[in-house]
């Protein structure tokens, strides 16, 4: 059976890659990518095979319904979630994009007679991060403190609309994917931009557990979900966790531990100055961290992400040429000094 797939958010990194991968899948007849700006205007290579089309649609308008009725779409892959406000547009525009965009898209899907599969990207930010949550979230758990701002809040609302849609159209299998923060050579997110700063501010007295998913694995999960029926909600993350201290040691960068009130005050200042993106949501992640259970996805797909959390992070560091830096070099130098001649460390 061949598919006609609609991918939203193709001018964003993951969207462009998913559209490209689906276009080269023999089971997919055609791919229609939509976004407010063409991917090439963002400097992304969009589908080298040239089989994917691009249509400029603002999801906040009802134009998307016209595109869907004309093109006989049968699979909708909704990736157009903005995780951080852009400096120019701000938080209101991000919220409108995420929530109104999703509502318009789902409204069009509900009317459609041809759609028979919907895949929606969400985030593990829906679980929030706090000190009184379980260490590992499964899909059924609800956070003690549900996020009341930012990306996490948007994602919770988006998920609410997705569940409403699934109730009204029980004939359409809906996959809801909660992705851990993406990590990899070409990912650009608030978190990846954080780790390439020359000096890393951390929250004094806190060492959160972080979890990442490699971009290649994220693309593979979305591809599988787009061409097979896997209804349900799934966490998507690389195996294992890294603590913040492990991450910064791997970068070899200096850290500046700041007490969390100072973080809040200074964070606002540096955000205004445009040095660093900062949100209260990030502060709670940098304090308490978050880990999710991915057993349900592994069981459903019979597949595990190729990159563990640590491997994804190392791949990101390799691509940015950050091999560990001065502290490790120092230890190596001392080790060389104390190592007796002729002894290579073994017996």
């Amino acid at each position: 059976m061949t598919h006609t797939v609609l991918v939203t958010g193709v001018s964003r990194h993951i969207g462009a890659r998913v559209a490209g991968v689906l276009a080269s899948d023999p089971d997919v007849a055609s791919v229609i990518g939509v976004d407010t700006a063409p991917p090439w205007s963002q400097g992304r290579s969009y589908d080298p095979s040239g089989r994917a089309q691009f249509v400029r649609v603002d999801l906040r308008s009802s134009d998307i319904a016209d595109v869907m009725s004309v093109a006989d779409i049968d699979t909708v892959v909704h990736l157009s979630l903005v995780s951080a406000p852009s400096r120019s547009a701000g938080r209101d525009s991000m919220k409108e994009h995420n929530i109104i965009g999703t509502m318009q898209l789902l409204a069009a899907c509900q009317r459609s007679a041809t759609v028979r599969r919907v895949v929606v990207r969400s985030t593990t930010a829906v679980y929030g991060s706090s000190s009184h949550d379980p260490a590992v979230f499964t899909e059924d758990l609800e956070a003690a403190d549900t996020p009341n701002h930012g990306y996490g809040k948007d994602a919770i609302e988006v998920e609410g609309y997705v569940r409403g849609f699934a109730r009204r159209r029980p004939d359409i299998p809906v996959s809801l994917l909660r992705f851990a923060p993406l990590m990899g050579p070409t990912v650009s997110s608030p978190l990846t931009r954080f780790f390439v700063k020359p000096v890393l501010p951390t929250v004094l007295g806190f060492d959160p557990r972080l979890q990442f998913v490699h971009e290649d694995d994220a693309v593979e999960v979305l591809r599988r979900m787009a061409v097979e029926d896997h209804p349900g909600t799934f966490n998507v993350a690389g195996d294992g966790v890294l603590t913040m201290s492990q991450c910064v040691r791997r970068t070899g960068r200096l850290t500046v531990p700041l007490p969390s009130p100072a973080f809040r005050v200074l964070g606002e200042a540096v955000r205004r100055a445009g040095i660093l993106e900062y949100s209260p949501e990030q502060l709670s992640l940098l304090s308490h961290g978050r880990a999710v259970d991915t057993a349900r996805l592994a069981h459903e797909l019979g597949w595990k992400p190729k990159f563990t959390t640590a491997a994804a992070f190392d791949d990101f560091l390799r691509a940015h040429g950050m091999p560990g830096g001065l502290p490790v070099a120092l230890v190596d130098a001392v080790a060389e000094l104390v190592r007796p001649r002729g002894d290579t460390g073994g017996e």
Partner: peptide, 27 residues
């Protein structure tokens, strides 16, 4: 000597962040 080598290896692992913690953060 062996002790020292092991200590340096331990130190290197710690400084490089090259050790494992479980999902609860146990090191």
């Amino acid at each position: 000597v062996d002790h020292l080598t092991r200590f340096m290896d331990f130190l290197r692992r710690r400084v490089a962040g090259d050790y494992e913690v479980d999902e609860f953060g146990f090191d």
